[in-house]
Each structure stands twice: as C-alpha cells, then as structure tokens.
Amino acid sequence: MSGNLRKNIKPGLSVSIVEKQNQRNGQLTTGVVKDILTNSPQHPHGIKVRLTSGKIGRVKEIK
C-alpha cells in the first residue's frame, strides 16, 4: 500500500517513516501511528504522522 494516500493510513497501523532530519540519508524509523497530521487526501512525499513514540515524519512504508 502507498504511504502517499491518507485513506491507507489509520491509527494503530505499523509503518516506517522518514523524519525531517533524516530526509537526506533516507533513514527509516518504524513505529505505530498515533495521529495523522496531513489533512489532504494525498501527498507526493508521504502522509505526515505522529507515532506513539512521539516522533513525527512522512510515511514511506506500511507494514
């Protein structure tokens, strides 16, 4: 599933995100979605979410 579409992402889903400071090197952080922060139905760089750990980033992979 694509991390670019808001409809594919729900709270409680396990995802991999790229945080702002890791956008250049592409390092992924895995966690569980707490909140969806992007309001639009799609975003070319991935939907922005907050994980249960408090980290914020754009979804690159849905587990």
Rank of each mutant, 00 (worst) to 15 (best):
M1R: 13
M1D: 08
M1F: 08
S2W: 03
S2R: 08
S2M: 10
L5P: 01
L5F: 13
L5K: 12
K7D: 14
K7M: 11
K7L: 08
K7Y: 15
K7E: 13
K7V: 12
N8H: 11
I9S: 02
I9E: 06
K10W: 03
P11T: 03
G12T: 03
G12N: 11
L13N: 11
V15L: 03
S16P: 08
I17D: 05
I17Y: 06
V18Y: 02
V18Q: 08
E19D: 07
E19L: 09
K20L: 12
K20I: 12
N22W: 13
N22M: 04
G26Q: 07
Q27S: 12
L28W: 05
L28R: 15
T29L: 13
T30I: 13
T30G: 06
T30A: 12
T30Y: 07
G31T: 03
G31M: 06
G31R: 00
V32L: 04
V32H: 08
V33D: 04
D35N: 14
I36Y: 00
L37T: 00
T38A: 01
T38Y: 00
T38D: 02
N39R: 09
N39A: 10
S40N: 09
P41C: 12
Q42E: 15
Q42S: 15
Q42K: 14
H43D: 15
H43A: 09
H43N: 15
H43Q: 08
P44L: 11
P44Y: 09
H45C: 12
H45V: 07
G46F: 00
I47E: 02
I47R: 04
I47H: 01
I47V: 11
K48T: 12
K48M: 06
K48L: 06
K48Q: 12
V49C: 04
V49G: 04
V49T: 03
L51W: 01
L51E: 05
L51A: 08
T52N: 09
S53K: 09
S53Q: 08
G54S: 05
G54M: 04
G54V: 00
G54Y: 01
K55F: 04
K55R: 15
K55Y: 01
I56L: 01
I56N: 00
R58M: 11
R58I: 12
V59R: 04
V59K: 06
V59G: 04
K60R: 15
I62D: 06
I62F: 02
I62R: 03
I62V: 14
K63R: 13
